[in-house]
């Protein structure tokens, strides 16, 4: 009952409540982090490398479990998420990687269709959605190519198409422009903004400060596992 109520009344897409993450061996990646991200918000997560950006994203994806504290995603307490529920939980989150993580043994179309296959869509509906996603990232003409034949920017766009094809409520990106030049980076950011405009919550981990400064979105800053900006200010919300 408490779970249902918290889901109904919580408007937060992501909520961290005094979360710490200690890796075996003693390295403390995150130290007492509290923040929240409203639904349909757009925010950056920044900090020097090793500050804990990736760890924070991994906690949201449940690739790692918090050592202490609680993480909520869309009102769901991830500490109570069973192994069986985990895949269904992940289907609501789109994830974009720095190295795009495309599979080179299949076409662009099949890469993007993967989440839909997993979710069990029939091929006609899946085809419709894949083409819509590829159209959005401007790669509809390349659907039959192997992603290895595409440029870095195009590969990243295929990765984004795959992340959004299932219409997730939350889009996470880990250094999505890390390997791209400024022009391509700006294009990628525009894509994320477009998805945000239709109600998708977006959280982008990046250390590209010039790009972040240009875009004027709320910024969460990590330093040695502590949140030094964004935690107490009411910046991370839907204005």
């Amino acid at each position: 009952m408490r779970m249902i109520l918290s889901r109904l009344f919580s408007a937060k897409m992501i909520k961290f409540d005094a979360v710490s993450k200690r890796y075996p061996g003693g390295h403390e990646a995150l130290n007492n982090i509290s923040f929240h991200l409203e639904k349909a918000a757009f925010a950056f997560l920044t900090g020097h490398s090793g500050a804990g950006k990736s760890t924070l994203l991994k906690l949201i994806m449940q690739m790692e479990k918090a050592s202490s504290g609680q993480v909520f995603v869309n009102g769901q307490n991830l500490n109570r998420l069973s192994r069986r529920q985990l895949p269904y939980f992940r289907r609501n989150i789109g994830l974009v990687f720095q190295d795009h993580q495309l599979l080179f043994d299949r076409s662009v179309f099949e890469n993007v269709a993967l989440p839909l296959q997993i979710a069990g869509y029939d091929s006609r509906e899946a085809g419709r959605r894949v083409r819509a996603a590829l159209d959005k990232v401007g790669l509809l003409k390349k659907e039959n190519q192997n992603p290895i034949a595409l440029s870095g920017g195009e590969q990243q766009r295929v990765g984004i198409a795959r992340a959004v094809v299932n219409k997730p409520a939350l889009l996470l990106a880990d250094e999505p422009t890390g390997n791209l030049d400024p022009l391509l980076s700006a294009e990628i950011m525009e894509l994320f903004e477009e998805f945000n405009r239709v109600g998708v919550s977006v959280l982008i981990a990046s250390h590209d400060l010039s790009l972040i400064a240009k875009l004027r979105y709320p910024v969460l800053t990590l330093d040695h596992g502590r949140m030094i900006r964004g935690a107490t200010e009411k910046v991370v919300s839907d204005s």
């Binding site: 690739m63 895949p87 269904y88 939980f89 992940r90 289907r91 043994d105 997993i118 299932n166």
Partner: peptide, 16 residues
């Protein structure tokens, strides 16, 4: 292995 990791991240169940 790479494919398995990606499939698990986009919500593939153990049986899938």
């Amino acid at each position: 292995r790479d494919e398995i990791v990606v499939v698990k991240l986009v919500g593939g169940t153990d049986s899938f």
